[in-house]
Design a protein around this nucleic acid. Sequence first.
DNA 1: GATCCTCGAGTTCC
DNA 2: CTCGAGGATC
Length: 728
Amino acid sequence: MAARRDEPVRIRELRRRLNEANFAYYVENDPVMPDSEYDRLLRELEDLERSHPELADESSPTQRVGGQPIAGFKTVRHTVPMQSVDNTYSTAELRAWHQRVLKGLGAPADSQAGHGEQEADDLFSSAKKQKAHGDRIAFVCDPKIDGVAISLRYEAGRLVRAVTRGDGEKGDDVTAKARAIRAIPLSLKNVNDGPPAVLEMRGEIFMPNREFERINAAKEAGGEPPFANARNATAGTLKNLDPKIVAERRLNFVAHGRGLAPGLDHIETFSDFLGYIRELGVPISRDVERFETFDEVVAHVERFADQRGELGYGVDGMVIRVDRFDQQDRLGATSKAPRWCIAYKYPAEQGRTKLVKVDWQVGKGGTLTPRATMEPIFIAGTTVQHATLHNIEEIRRKDIRIGDTVIVEKAGEIIPQVVGAVEQDRPKNARKIHPPEKCPACGGPVEPEGPKLYCTNPECPAQFREKLKWFVGRDQMDIDGLGEKLVDQLIDAGLVEHFADLFTLPEKRDQLLALDRMGEKSVENLIAGIEEARSRGLARVLAGLGIRHLGTTTAKQLARIFPDIDALLEADVEQLMPKALGRKDAVRYGFPEDPKDRLETGLGRETAPAVHAFLHSPPGREALGRLKRIGVDLTSPIYREASTKPRAREDDSPFGGKTIVLTGTLERYTRPELTERLEALGAKVSGSVSKKTDLVIAGENAGSKLEKANELGIEVWDEAKLRAELGA
DNA sequence: GATCCTCGAGTTCC
DNA sequence: CTCGAGGATC
């Protein structure tokens, strides 16, 4: 049949027309066919492809909803971390950022106090200054769409992977869902020499307002709870395991950033990059604009505030970037966000409601924080009932009283904040808020410290409850299957009185099964999670204990200096803070004179005493002792690795496996140098002398440690003996 | 002593 | 996510 021979041609034509329709709709914002027509063509293509399996192509428009729903999510590491962007909330802050950019690029500051006639014409003067410097700085403005950030990877022009931002390092693999979104091209268009071998881009998946309303209407009609806002609806849709549902809900996408993009060195600016990917058929925002001067940027940002309501999708700010990539590279990034990029956030939505009561919450460190309960109010997509009032000074400054009508807004569109009270509306019976005289949880003594209040009872049960929740948390021991609710249950059931008790739970299956909502499966998970947490290592345990000033990062630093908890316990305060020591003290403790040469890490003068005090306090000693006895790993893996390699030499080195303490001033070595060297020979260098010490190396002016070594009958070498043994 | 950066702490909702 | 304060740097 003649028609049959033409079918392959028709398939190619249909694919082309459908792709063009998507391009016209999403990239050019100029639809060429109605949805009904699109669906009709798509069905025709499906039929034809069924009878021609030999022409299958994973980039065909029919392959957007591929195969069966996948189970769960795979976590994937980003090839280039997805950093977040710093926020500003006023044009003054925006200009301050501009100044930092100018400074960072070595351009002259754009001072307000201009010179005579230049002052009259800002545009002229800044342009002239930049020109004079030969280093113009142009900016690109892009509306900040309120959606879900995503990273797309194309290989040889084909979409191979889509990953959510996640924590910036790792995200969820949502490739199947991204394929179901028509705005995301499955294959890039051919331009010039064809698409690059690898191209990664970042963008935003979002839901237009009309679609959001349509879905919510349908949900409500079906008796289901509606989504709170368009962003939640987007995130919820992407979490849905069935790509068909994703396809039904018309999500949209625009690209707004570059990921891994090798071989594109000829593209020197962000605006050119956007132009390039648009040619490849990738949608970008139609509101992207480039400006040569910062005054134009500010004017644009202000002007756009009025337009954002009419866009048909949620925009909560404007992202401003330095256009040239070489300038971006020169500016670099802080650990959190790039310095060449800033977001201006439009003012938060506000609302008024009545303050019903104020409770004082006990934090994990004993802080007492006033927490407001208000009559529920709907702001920026969610119903708000609670907000923190921070501390008593804040309450006085804003003069907030119970019964007041208060103004509430969401900081960064997320966390509710009480801005202030409406004084005219104050009822006669409004009551002042008083700080508690006793801890509301344990009745213990309350002490102020600065504007904050603390419950000083070390055994306050509420404090322990919070500490335990912290201990099991993700950045600490990361115990899978143990959330806040379960912590409450465990404490209420009397199953856990100390951190260490968690590790006895695997032996208490029956009692776990007796808990509310705990079945076989949950208990299995919990036990597996606990067993896994045993070997998290020193840093996470330290961070988990909830010691004041000691968080994740500082705990890691400590674990880098000390191989295990015993070494840490043996150190005195000064040894914890090599960098903060004065010259004299540094020399006394055997550190190099110049702080720069001292250990990279270490605590400061506030943190070191706090940590030291905790470690040697009765509760601290007890907690650590119990953890150790129950078999929790209190060593640092970095050290284990570092000291296993050179182990080969252990046997022929007099230092192998020995625990060595250095004291006094050595002539030929700095302490870190010697520590490193001895460790390389398989020794463990520890901070102070105990009966576990094998050898003490004493320099000039050795003090108490030498005395103690003599007391305990430990071998002591002087520097000459050390040099002889080291063969140097 | 001042300034900039980083880290810790507290916090809401679903 | 933001704030405040600790810590580093000049």
